[in-house]
């Protein structure tokens, strides 16, 4: 209907009787045109994919490697340098380290409040030991906001002191997260893991439906 009122016709200038009739004819025909288009869509396949349960491949697996999902920390690699805590612009990471009687520094707390985290990635960039990284998980809806504070330290663990090149490899993405965030589904379906391990090209996005 809007298109039936061309800009030349202002409220003060209806354009004479001919213009008036022309507007009505154009209105009617353009409405018919529009109705025909919407009707034609009634016979087409809907394009949406029914997330989350009717997708062929779980969505996290289709995400690129650099995707910044929920943060996870591999405590075997964390040296307790506190760089991440200092870098975080919104202070959603809180770490405590205590020195025991045996003079070993132990991590007693490594909490990340993912309800406040804005996924900027500064902490994982600043982590020199690849301990803190983004997983590929993002579905963390919970009933209570306090459940979204992830406690990575269950019992005090000594901070890592690896020599260069001796550090153990990082655990697969999302695995640690699954331990601290109950209710998270399987992080990777077996076929996808095989595919990823075999081809070594995780960002090809072949799993896209």
């Amino acid at each position: 209907m809007v298109s039936a009122l061309p800009p030349a016709v202002t409220p003060g200038n209806p354009g004479g009787v001919r213009g008036w009739v022309g507007h009505i004819v154009r209105t009617a025909s353009s409405i018919l045109e529009g109705l025909a288009v919407t009707l034609s869509w009634a016979f087409r396949r809907p394009y949406t994919i029914q997330y989350p349960d009717k997708v062929e491949v779980p969505v996290p697996e289709t995400l690129p490697e650099a995707y910044r999902g929920i943060l996870e920390v591999d405590l075997r690699l964390c040296t307790g340098c506190l760089q991440c805590e200092k870098t975080c612009p919104i202070q959603c990471i809180s770490i405590s380290i205590e020195k025991g009687e045996d003079a070993v520094r132990r991590l007693t707390r490594f909490d990340i409040d993912i309800s406040r985290c804005m996924y900027c990635g500064l902490c994982s960039e600043s982590c020199a030991f690849d301990a803190l990284a983004h997983s590929n998980q993002f579905e963390a809806a919970r009933q209570d906001i306090s459940e979204l504070t992830l406690h990575f330290v269950r019992e005090p663990v000594p901070v890592a002191r690896h020599k260069a090149g001796e550090a153990p490899p990082r655990r697969p993405r999302g695995e640690i997260l699954r331990e601290v965030l109950p209710g998270l589904g399987p992080v990777m379906s077996p076929p996808a893991r095989d595919r990823r391990a075999g081809q070594g090209d995780p960002s090809s996005g072949e799993g896209k439906p």
Binding site: A36, R44, R45
Partner: peptide, 24 residues
Amino acid sequence: KARAAYLADREPYRRLEGKDPWYP
């Protein structure tokens, strides 16, 4: 007109989806 609109948009749709676009 509806038929014409359906036929006009059919080919690109088919290429995208790889499936028959006809969906009564």
